[in-house]
């Protein structure tokens, strides 16, 4: 059952939910972006509908709520180790369909690929997801081609239409709240994108042989290896460990993990001083194949959810979707090599 609420009523619902949950949604950080007086849209705690940014795509995804950019795992002294505590409240995360699909990818790595991750799991269990209806794609989106434009595994759905809030909840307590503050509407289903301005096509016979294509060479020079694409990506989850000891007590400290980028120097450095993928073109190939080939080989579905944030955030105007669309030609090139 769907419900229609005024924004005031919805704010009361949020206030009620706020007693149990910390509510996170994409919100506007005025002037918070790279360049002066440019807003940044990213996830933060919200208390009202007005704070939820529904008009603009978030520059950074929800993933930082489950995998913070910097997360303390434990504190240690000489003889003791103490796990860092977890936030007390449960969490509600508002996100679009592409990002809800990304959650499955995060779960795949952090709950199933090898042993489950304690820190991810304890946060993950606290989270309820509210799907933000997404009536129209942004310029760089290609969710339809990645099959991530629709989601039905949400705990609740939310959409603003004509200044009114439409909600549907699967959670019985939330349903009761909506009944209390809103009026029932028949047949509410969250909007989803059916076509995107950006299209991608990934060759069916894509294989690691594409590494030999010259398609990657231009990125040796074009890419600056800054990692923005990874940090903005909702499915990039690599991390690096850091041990810190406190400057005022050298015997105590903490171990943290911080988000890592396969595009940034040092990602593959081994203790002896060696490293792999020194060229940025090689890193690009590694990232692209991870997103649209390797992960699928391992898990049966594509990792990339087509949100296009990597395109939006790249300071060098390198388009991930444009690379995907070069793969067919790249495969032809390497197949041609094989025939000679």
């Amino acid at each position: 059952m769907g419900y229609r609420l005024s924004t005031d009523a919805m704010n009361q619902v949020l206030a009620e939910l706020g007693k149990q949950y910390a509510i996170y949604a994409p919100k506007c950080y005025p002037g918070g972006n790279t360049f002066s007086e440019v807003d940044c849209i990213r996830y933060g705690e919200v208390h009202t509908v007005e704070e939820i940014e529904t008009e603009r795509k978030s520059d950074y995804s929800f993933k930082e709520l489950l995998l913070p950019f910097s997360e303390t795992l434990f504190f240690f002294t000489e003889n003791t180790i103490q796990e860092a505590s977890v936030i007390e409240k449960d969490m509600v995360i508002f996100l679009r369909s592409c990002d809800l699909h990304a959650v499955r990818r995060l779960d795949e790595i952090y709950l199933r690929n090898g042993l489950p991750d304690f820190y991810y799991q304890r946060l993950r269990e606290k989270v309820q997801f509210v799907l933000i209806g997404c009536p129209a794609a942004f310029d760089s989106c290609f969710c339809v081609d990645m099959g991530t434009n629709r989601s039905d595994n949400y705990d609740a759905a939310f959409e603003l239409r004509g200044g009114q809030v439409y909600m549907a909840a699967r959670h019985p307590q939330w349903e009761a709240l909506l009944r209390q503050y809103g009026e029932p509407v028949e047949g509410f289903a969250p909007s989803y994108v059916t076509e995107t301005p950006t299209r991608v096509s990934i060759p069916a016979d894509l294989s690691p042989a594409v590494a030999k294509s010259t398609v990657w060479d231009e990125y040796d020079k074009r890419c600056i290896g800054c990692g923005r694409c990874n940090y903005a990506c909702p499915t990039c989850t690599c991390f690096t460990m850091q041990d810190i000891y406190y400057t005022d007590n050298a015997k105590a400290g903490e171990r943290r993990r911080v988000a890592a980028s396969c595009m940034v120097d040092g990602f593959t450095d081994v203790a002896g001083g060696g490293s792999y993928r020194k060229k940025h073109g090689e890193r690009m190939r590694f990232k692209v194949l991870h997103k649209v080939y390797d992960f699928k080989q391992r898990n049966g579905y594509q990792m990339c959810v087509g949100c296009g944030r990597c395109d939006d955030v790249c300071p060098e105007y390198i388009s991930f979707s444009a690379i995907l669309n070069k793969l067919e030609e790249a495969m032809q090139e390497v197949r041609g090599d094989g025939q000679q």
């Binding site: 950080y29 002037g31 790279t34 940044c40 950074y60 950019f69 940090y231």
Partner: peptide, 17 residues
């Protein structure tokens, strides 16, 4: 000068209001 903000890929550095 803001070079730190411009080069930061995660918004750890931002500009003052």
């Amino acid at each position: 000068c803001g070079e730190c903000v411009i080069n930061c890929p995660t918004r750890a550095w931002t500009r003052s209001q």
